[in-house]
Each structure stands twice: as structure tokens, then as C-alpha cells.
Amino acid sequence: MSVNATPAGADVAADETATGTAGRHAAVPAQRSGRAPKTPLSENKRAERKLGWLLCAPAALVMLLVTAYPILYSIWLSLQRFDLRFPAEREFIGLENYVTVLTNEFWWTAFGVTMLITVVTVAVELVLGMGLALIMHRTLVGRGIVRTAALIPYGIVTVVAAFSWRYAWTPGTGYLANVFGEGAPLTERASSLAIVMLAEIWKTTPFMALLLMAGLALVPEDLLKAASTDGATAWQRFTKVMLPVMKPAILVALLFRTLDAFRVFDNIYVLTAGANETSSVSMIAYNNLIRGLNLGIGSTMSVLIFLTVAIIAFVFVKLFGTAAPGSDDGERR
């Protein structure tokens, strides 16, 4: 943030006079430090800001109506003992539900499984997606076909894809069931998790690739040419020029995918239904809330998932400086 405090700023002004373009760039540092000094806004600026708020207002209002109510309502539910099987025992109990969930080993197992799936799938997707993006970016012939083909998995409904994976791994009928010798892979914990992750990766790598390809388009051709003449090998061009320039896009892609992966549900629901300790947090929240009809505990889990997702987003945005790709990146560094 605000790389340019006063000394650097003053320097710019001095140097500009020397090179004869005074004033043209002198305004940059002031603008850059943005929120730090509370200088009075000019009439123009204020009008602009007001317009900005007005333009956002309708969307913000709809968002509030649609999301704020359910969120607040689940928080309210999570503070009560509320089991639909025993409606008479409904009672406000403060944070007791949270204590129950957070001291429960099933919750933590599911949390671990979710974390594992998140980290592994996002990491693998990043690598594969980057490869795919590079291929799609570089192909000159049949560009459209390559892109369409790569996107097919993402276009298939997750549940449908999950069923096809399940049948593929089912002993007797599935074509994949025996690739790792005899046995039913979906009945063991490790292999089940591996299959869940495989299904996830297969499905969402194209999405990752698409986001990364947008990032690749941000790398100017001249920059790579310059690196070539500066003596960089293809790998050095990739690691030292492309990746740093693409960083904002990569972070956005990672953020999207991490948030998505953390809420993994459909694949597990279809492939294992949570058997052999393969439940994700979303799975057990669903089991408690919908199947167990325990609104209190279920809501508590939902709120916890919401909080975790919020923390992940916060970490990405604040610590890694994730911003929309293409937004002024000089500002965040």
C-alpha cells in the first residue's frame, strides 16, 4: 500500500520538472495513497462518489434482501435448541450449540476431510488449469474446438457427472472398478476420497483454465519478447515474467476455487453419501439440518461454514492482495 509516502512523492515532482513534463505525473502519488490523508474532497469528487453509491444501491438492496434475511435467520436458529422432532423443547440457549459442534469429533473429521479436498483439488487444478490455459492460449489452429472441448466437463451437471463416476467405479459393471486390482474402491476411505477429488478436479479444471486464460491475456506480448532477448529460457519467461504479471488473476482464480471447493457437496453425496468418514462439512450440515431435522445444530454448522468461507476470502483479499484482474496493480503492491 501507499508505496509513495512524502519523500518519494516530492522526488517525482522534482524530477518531472527536470525532464520537462511537470504536473503530468505529479498527481499520481496523491491519488495513490487514497484513504490515508483525509483531505477535503473537491465538489467534483464528491458528486462522483455520490453517483457511485447511487449506481450501486439497487444491486446492494437486492443483495441485502436476498441474502441478509436467511443469514440472520440461521444465526438466530443457531442460538436455539430447536429439533423439529421435539418442537416442545425449543429454547434459547446462547452459544451452547457452538460448543456442542466444536467439541464434536465428527465435525472435526468432516472439517479435516473438507480441508484436504480443498487444498489438494485447488492445487492440482491450478497446475493442470495453467497447463490447459497455456495450451488454449498458444494454439493457433482450431482454437475454438480446443476451447470447447476443454470446457465440456464444466458444462455437465455435477450430479450427473458424479453418477457416471460412481457407475464407473462400481465393481462388476464399471469400467474403472478393476484398474487398481480387485475390490470396491468406493467402500474404502482413502480410495473414496481420491475418487471424490478426481471427480472434482475433472469437473472444475476447465473453469480454472478459463480464469487463468483471462490472466494470460493480460501479459503483454512485448514483455515476453523482451525477456527472450534479455536471455530468458521458456521456463524463466514463465516463472519470472508471466506468473508475476498474472498474479492478480491467479489469486482471483484461487479464491473462487477455494471458496467453491470448501463447500463440496454433490460429488460426495452421490459417490459415497458420506460413508467411511468421507463427509464434508456441507454434508454433515445437510445431514443434521434436513435429515436429522435438528435446525439448531444444522444452522450452527451452516454459520460455521459461512464464517470459514468469510475467513478464507478475507485472507485472500487482505493478506495476498487479491483484486479484480486488470485493476491497477501498481496500487496494491
Binding site: L223, A227, S228, T229, G231, V245, K247, G330
Partner: peptide, 20 residues
């Protein structure tokens, strides 16, 4: 390859590495 030719190039867009 360009890197084996030992030439330096200056571009219209300057092509400075923004992260450095």
C-alpha cells in the same frame, strides 16, 4: 534462439517488467 544471439532490444511499449 534470441538469448543465444546476444542482442538487446528496446520496444515502443518499453516492455518493463511491472513486478520488478
Amino acid at each position: 534462439a534470441p538469448r543465444e544471439r546476444d542482442i538487446a532490444m528496446v520496444f515502443q511499449s518499453y516492455a518493463l517488467y511491472p513486478n520488478m
